[in-house]
Structures are given as C-alpha cells and as structure tokens.
Amino acid sequence: MPASTLITVAPTGAETAKADMPQLPTTLPELVETALRCERAGAALIHVHIRDEQHRPSLDPTRLRDTVQALREATDLVVQLSTGGSVHDPLEARLRVLDAGPDSCSLTCGTVNFGDEVFTNPYPFMSRLYVQAQEQQVVPEFELFDLGQVAALGRLIDQHGLPFGGRVHVDFVTGVPGGMPGTVPALVAGVSALPAEVTSWSATGIGRTHLPIAAAALAMGGHLRVGMEDNLMLARGRPVQHNDELVSRAAALAQTMQRPAMSSADARELLGIREV
C-alpha cells in the first residue's frame, strides 16, 4: 500500500460549455488561479485541456506552450497536457501537443464510444504517440476506458519497451457512457488485468460514480483524479463552485485512509518526471 496519494486535478475537459458552467476555468488566468488553489488543497499534478477565446476546445500550439510556461512559473505542479483534445480533433494535431514541452501527457489506449460521439485512438496513432513521447522525454499517463485498453497497453510496452522515465502509470476513467462502468467490480477487474510493468495507477469516476471509485481506489492502493472535467456536482443539488472543493475532499478522504496527499516532488519521483 503506498504511503501517500497522488491527487490529479482535471479542471476543465473538453465537454462542458462555459455558458452552462460559468465557474469552469477556460482562460489562462482562470487556469493558473485554479492550479494555485488546487495545489494548496493537495493536488500534485494538473491534467490540462485548453480553450480558445470563445471558450471552445483548442489545440493551438502557442496557447499550449503559453499554458505550460504559465503553470510552471506559478506552481510546482506536474503539468500534463491532454493529447485527446476533443473528440473532433484530428490525430496529427493531437501528436503535436508534445511540442509544447509538458512534463507528462495523456495517452488513451484505444477507441471508445464517448456518449453519442466516438473518441478515436487507432493502434498506429497510439504507437506513434508512445514513441514520440519517448523521444521528447515526456512521461505518458495511460488512460484506460475499458478492459480491452488494458491489453493494448501491454501490447505497446511489448513493442516499444518502457516509456521515458522507466515508470508506467495508468488512469482508469470509469463511468463514461460507452466505456467501463464506474463500479467497484469493474475497477477491480481492470486493476487485476494490469501488465506487470505498471508501477502505479489512479482512477476517476464520472459524475455520480466519483466518490465510490475514489473510495475503492484508495482502499486498493491506487491514486485519485478529480476535477470538473469529470464531475460537476459536489453533492445532490450542489454544483461545484471551484475545483479546489473536489481536491480538498479527495485530500481529506486520503488523509482518513492514512495515505495523505503527496507533494509534487514525490509525484515527480513516482512518475519518473525529468528535471526542467
């Protein structure tokens, strides 16, 4: 059982409209303010999606570089850029995300139905992203939406060796309509199927599966991802007003389980992040 807990905050995502959730951080100043407050609350890593001036999902290279730089200057958080973007982004644009020089990137291990859309991740794209991350010294976090993607992760490791940094960290994203359900049995099955090379794992539950998955992950030795990308309600009838509410609750739960939130320095060691 790990002595402490890596808490990742995913503050924005690509699905929720700013008009529907004005408190969603979509501008760079809002994102930096969110990062600072979430770091104080216990987060050690920030998983970043960016938006354009109209608050629409974007993979603009300049915005990505500016975001990485601003977050590094303001915080000690591990900066992880999403290579998923939105379900509409072309594969080539998603590959160029690494050019912004993040500490880490997401790497989803397969195509999955995503509500009424399809989140496309064909194996050749995954393979290119894996190798590119090795070459550019970016540590991938392998996002797993179903059990088939656990097997695909094993295939990537067998084909290309260990990722940069020598560690293999995965995140189970549960509760997406079309992916694995946000239930304890589903999470247990996923963890049981992980390749031997995996050194750490985290989990998140979408929407109302948020808390059960967090509790199960802590009990099983896993780490946590929270944030408004995954959950917009703090409780029934109580919308989240700021991402630090979700981070604070996760940190309190981890403390109760005698696995307090780890520092960013410990997160860098856990994940094999390079010095910048």
Score class of each variant (00 low, 15 high):
Glu141Met: 10
Glu143Gly: 12
Leu144Asn: 08
Leu144Pro: 13
Phe145Arg: 04
Phe145Asp: 06
Asp146Ile: 06
Leu147Asp: 09
Gly148Ser: 11
Gly148Arg: 11
Gln149Met: 14
Gln149Ile: 10
Val150Ala: 06
Val150Asp: 12
Ala151Phe: 04
Ala152Glu: 12
Leu153Val: 06
Gly154Tyr: 13
Arg155Val: 01
Arg155Ser: 10
Leu156Val: 08
Asp158Thr: 09
Asp158Tyr: 13
Gln159His: 15
Gln159Gly: 14
Gly161Cys: 00
Phe164Glu: 05
Val168Gln: 04
Val168Cys: 10
Val168Thr: 07
Val168Pro: 15
Val168Phe: 12
Val168Gly: 13
His169Lys: 01
His169Tyr: 15
Asp171Asn: 11
Phe172Val: 02
Thr174Pro: 08
Thr174Asp: 02
Thr174Phe: 06
Thr174Met: 10
Gly175Trp: 01
Gly175Asn: 08
Val176Ile: 15
Pro177Ile: 01
Gly178Met: 09
Gly178Gln: 05
Gly179His: 10
Gly179Asn: 07
Met180Ile: 03
Pro181Glu: 03
Gly182Arg: 06
Thr183His: 05
Thr183Gln: 03
Pro185Tyr: 10
Leu187Ser: 07
Leu187Lys: 06
Leu187Val: 05
Val188Leu: 10
Ser192Phe: 00
Pro195Val: 00
Pro195Cys: 00
Ala196Met: 01
Ala196Asp: 14
Glu197Gln: 14
Thr199Gly: 12
Ser200Val: 01
Trp201Glu: 06
Trp201Lys: 02
Trp201Asn: 08
Ser202Arg: 11
Ser202Ile: 00
Ser202Asn: 13
Ser202Lys: 05
Thr204Gly: 10
Gly205Tyr: 03
Gly205Pro: 10
Gly205His: 03
Ile206Arg: 08
Arg208Gly: 10
His210Leu: 05
His210Phe: 07
Leu211Thr: 15
Leu211Gly: 14
Pro212Gly: 09
Pro212Met: 05
Ile213Arg: 06
Ile213Glu: 10
Ala215Met: 12
Ala215Trp: 13
Ala217Gln: 01
Ala217Met: 01
Ala217Pro: 04
Met220Gln: 12
Met220Ile: 01
Leu224Thr: 11
Leu224Ser: 14
Arg225Pro: 15
Val226Gln: 09
Val226Asp: 11
Gly227Met: 03
Met228His: 02
Met228Cys: 07
Glu229Trp: 04
Glu229Lys: 14
Glu229His: 11
Asp230Asn: 15
Asn231Leu: 07
Asn231Val: 07
Asn231Tyr: 00
Leu232Cys: 09
Met233Cys: 08
Ala235Ile: 04
Arg236Met: 09
Gly237Arg: 14
Gln241Ala: 11
His242Asp: 03
Asn243Pro: 07
Asp244Met: 03
Asp244His: 15
Glu245Lys: 03
Leu246His: 02
Val247Phe: 00
Ser248Lys: 07
Arg249His: 12
Ala250Tyr: 04
Ala250Trp: 02
Ala252His: 09
Ala252Glu: 14
Ala254Arg: 07
Gln255Thr: 15
Thr256Lys: 05
Met257Leu: 06
Met257Tyr: 12
Gln258Val: 12
Gln258Trp: 08
Arg259Leu: 06
Arg259Met: 08
Pro260Thr: 14
Ala261Val: 08
Ala265Cys: 03
Ala265Ser: 12
Asp266Pro: 09
Asp266Ser: 14
Ala267Lys: 02
Ala267Ile: 02
Ala267Cys: 14
Arg268Met: 04
Arg268Val: 02
Arg268Cys: 09
